[in-house]
């Protein structure tokens, strides 16, 4: 029983990593055709990607979007998580539903509704509209990450601070904030990753300056080349590194409390 389950789990994890392994393999393969048998080792596809000025500019645009998005979602996610856990608000149930709405609504429908909204308001599309749109989409994730750290905080610490005469603000600043700081960091990193890989909403809301994901999507539709493998591998590795970083930060906070 247990052995079958072990095989099953290995199989499922294999399935999850098979596509990633495949693009890694072909990104180093010295052939224009993405097919077996492999033709030998090359780094030419990576060199082609790193030398591509258009993609380089797109990457910089992605960073310009992802930094503010991660700051906004983490700030709003933090106050939302506090209102849900340590400082319970009125109407929590309704709040949770509204908070999850950007996650439930199909992304394309959210994108077109925001597009109509911009048109009605007479706002032109720019990087700011991308930042606003992505922020609301990623907010549920940021809130969940920070809330998952907050629910593990021992309430007695806050009560003790109050008993010892600490004001609300100083107990927040000197007890709660240090304990939630790892959650804040993890939320920032995950939001950054989610923002940089977001495509549908970004494509609808971006104006002339296009982030990397939008540029990649048009390449992907019109000319598939092995250098796209190299780009995909770089994106995946960058994201994995950041996610592992975020997870280890978040987990460290679990051990401390």
């Amino acid at each position: 029983m247990s052995r079958i389950a072990t095989f099953w789990v290995w199989g499922v994890f294999g399935f999850m990593y098979l596509p990633i392994a495949m693009i890694l393999l072909f990104s180093l393969n010295a052939s224009d055709v993405m097919a077996f048998p492999l033709r030998g080792f090359t780094t030419q596809w990576y060199q082609a990607i790193l030398a591509d000025a258009r993609l380089g500019a797109g990457f910089v645009t992605t960073l310009w979007v992802a930094f503010p998005v991660a700051i906004f979602t983490t700030f709003f996610g933090a106050i939302a998580a506090l209102a849900l856990t340590l400082y319970p608000m009125r109407g929590r149930g309704v709040f949770v539903v509204v908070l999850l709405l950007p996650f439930i609504v199909p992304r394309l429908i959210l994108a077109v509704s925001q597009l109509i909204f911009l048109k009605e308001m007479g706002i032109d599309r720019s990087l700011w509209t991308v930042i606003a749109g992505q922020s609301i989409l990623i907010l549920p994730f940021a809130t969940l990450i920070i809330a998952s750290v907050l629910i593990r905080i021992d309430r007695r610490l806050i009560e003790a601070a109050a008993d010892l005469g600490a004001s609300r603000w100083s107990s927040f600043r000197r007890v709660v904030l240090p304990l939630m700081s790892n959650g804040i960091l993890a939320s920032w990193v995950i939001s950054f990753v989610l923002s940089s890989s977001e495509y549908v909403l970004t494509a609808f809301l971006s104006g002339r300056e296009q982030p990397l994901s939008v540029l990649v999507a048009s390449d992907f539709r019109f000319n598939i080349s092995p250098s796209l493998n190299a780009l995909a591998v770089l994106i995946v590795l960058g994201n994995i590194a950041l996610v592992v970083l975020a997870e280890s930060i978040r987990r460290r906070s679990g051990r401390k409390t």
Partner: peptide, 16 residues
């Protein structure tokens, strides 16, 4: 972890 690579990258990999 594979979730965070984004829709496009995953779809591209399945195409390959």
């Amino acid at each position: 972890v594979p979730l965070y690579s984004g829709d496009l990258v995953r779809i591209f990999a399945w195409r390959v």
